[in-house]
Amino acid sequence: MLDVVNLSHTYGTGPKAHHALGGIDLRVAEGELVCVVGPSGAGKSTLLRSIAGLLTPTGGQIRVNDTEVAGTPGDLAVVFQDYSRSLFPWVTVGDNVALPLRRRGKDKAARRAAAAEALAEVGLSGAAGKYPWELSGGMQQRVAIARALAYRPALLLMDEPFGSVDAQTREDLEDLVLKVRDHHRMTVLLITHDIDESVYLGDRVVVLTKAPATIAGELKVDLPSPRDQIATREHPAFVHLRAEVGRLVRGRDEHAPARP
């Protein structure tokens, strides 16, 4: 469904140039949930922004359903880490969710109905008339997820979606993502720096090296479904996988202790 071929990107030119991506090959199958992990500053966000068409990579190709895309594919949704900046404070929660559906050619009533349905799905049935800033952080991120859901994207991109919420909310939101993606058989590419989260959520975990990022390795996650915050995390396979991912993130050849 998504093919990233030899993608590279350099910010700026000359001696100040920052070589963020150094040739990434990545494939996401229809209905798959792939987590991308890597050390901070590894170019994870650059990868996501390239796929979303928010920046033009300096090299390589992005193909969606075997068609090369330049710019925004138009059939994807992005959930950003910074929900408070991503939601529009001047309109209600319901209108926030309904707005992107204009691109789907739906009339007002259909947009409103789809928004209400998506909000119910994330557990915010009564919130359509509220404003984003009247909600807690976790609820705001639920709204952002509902907005992406209502759009029914072929591909859902999530950029550190739970990086700004507390631990309990984070677990709730992780389970919410698993639930809605099971329900809609969505294709999801999720970026995180949290190793446990990548193993808990992913069908597959792709690990990036530090910049210029390349693929350090990838692991198939074979954990019983449905996942459970307590049982899955104490499963021997989970413990083993997170250790493997951890090694990849740190770098196989480095025997030095973890970087601060």
């Binding site: 979303a52 928010l54 925004t72 994807l76 900046r85 529009f88 707005l99």
Partner: peptide, 25 residues
């Protein structure tokens, strides 16, 4: 906010839509 603009752009909205729906309000 650039994040607000990028949000709308990522859904496939063009420059004029982003101006009308994010920048103006």
């Amino acid at each position: 906010d650039p994040v607000a603009k990028e949000t709308l752009r990522s859904f496939g909205f063009g420059r004029m839509s982003v101006l009308a729906r994010v920048s103006l309000p």
